[in-house]
Each structure stands twice: as structure tokens, then as C-alpha cells.
């Protein structure tokens, strides 16, 4: 795993990760057969662009604020079975895919935090992990409200 020496390096890494997510969703959007699923992936990509812009803003203006809040974990991404992207994916599959991707990002930043050489960098990683956790929660809530309707 890559070693980081300062906050800028971490932010560059995170910005790159967000860009990869944008590319991933755009590829899925291109291959999706259903117009609405296509739009869904484009929306997901747009969200990742927003995340990326936010990080770039932080890097430029140095306005990095720590998020100390605890983010709820519905654990839906833990228990759902992995989904393989196909051109005929349904919206609920798309949600599972997205929440698992955010969960993976959360895990990555949490691991990096564990390995961080100093507490300042550790806090930056933890903050990024919390951010990813929020993104995951957004997808879990959508899944919770519309798939697990219990009727």
C-alpha cells in the first residue's frame, strides 16, 4: 500500500479515486440498456464529480475540516450479495453495486488511517472514511425505503 507523507498527497490520491469512480459509473451508463438505469448511473457519476470537486476545493483553499459525526450504518452493504455489472441491471442492483463500492472506499481510508505515520494524517483519512460512509448511507437508505418495503 502506498505511503503518504503529507495531506496534499492524500487529497491527490482521494481525488484520483473519485475520478475512477466517475469513469466506472460512466462506463456502466454507456452499457446500460434501460434509459432510466443509464440516467441513474449518470447521476451516480455526477455525485462522484461533486465529491471530487469538493476535495479539489479543499486542496486549493486548504479548508479541511474534520467531520467528527458518527454516521449510521444500516449494514445493508454487508449482507447483500455482490452484484456483477451487466447491461440489464435493475435499479436495486445498481444501488447494491454503488453501496458496496462506497463501503470499499470506506474500508480503504480506514486502513490507511491505521497505517498513518502521524495523528494529523490519521485524522484526514478518518475524515475521508466518514465521508465515504455518508455516501454509502445515502444508497442504503434508498435501498431500505424502496426495496425492503415489507409488504
Amino acid at each position: 500500500m502506498k505511503e503518504f507523507e503529507n495531506i496534499d498527497e492524500i487529497l491527490d490520491f482521494a481525488i484520483n479515486e473519485e475520478q475512477q469512480a466517475v469513469d466506472f459509473y460512466m462506463t456502466l451508463a454507456e452499457s446500460a440498456k434501460n434509459e432510466y438505469i443509464k440516467n441513474t448511473f449518470i447521476d451516480f457519476a455526477k455525485e462522484e464529480v461533486n465529491h471530487k470537486n469538493r476535495l479539489m476545493d479543499i486542496k486549493q483553499n486548504g479548508l479541511f475540516t474534520m467531520t467528527a459525526e458518527t454516521v449510521a450504518d444500516l449494514k445493508i452493504s454487508d449482507y447483500t450479495v455482490s452484484v456483477h455489472p451487466t447491461p440489464n441491471m435493475t435499479y436495486s442492483d445498481a444501488l447494491v453495486l454503488a453501496m458496496k463500492k462506497e463501503k470499499a472506499a470506506f474500508k480503504l481510508y480506514s486502513k490507511l488511517a491505521e497505517r498513518a505515520p502521524n495523528s494529523e494524517l490519521k485524522d484526514v483519512f478518518l475524515s475521508l472514511a466518514a465521508e465515504e460512509s455518508k455516501h454509502k448511507l445515502r444508497f442504503e437508505i434508498e435501498y431500505d425505503e424502496f426495496v425492503l418495503k415489507e409488504n
Binding site: Y79, T80, V81, V83, V147, L148, K149
Partner: peptide, 9 residues
């Protein structure tokens, strides 16, 4: 039918 998409369904 809708499933929760968990293991063993």
C-alpha cells in the same frame, strides 16, 4: 417478487 438480495435466498 422482490428479494433482499442476501446470501442463501
Amino acid at each position: 417478487p422482490v428479494f433482499a438480495n442476501i446470501e442463501g435466498e
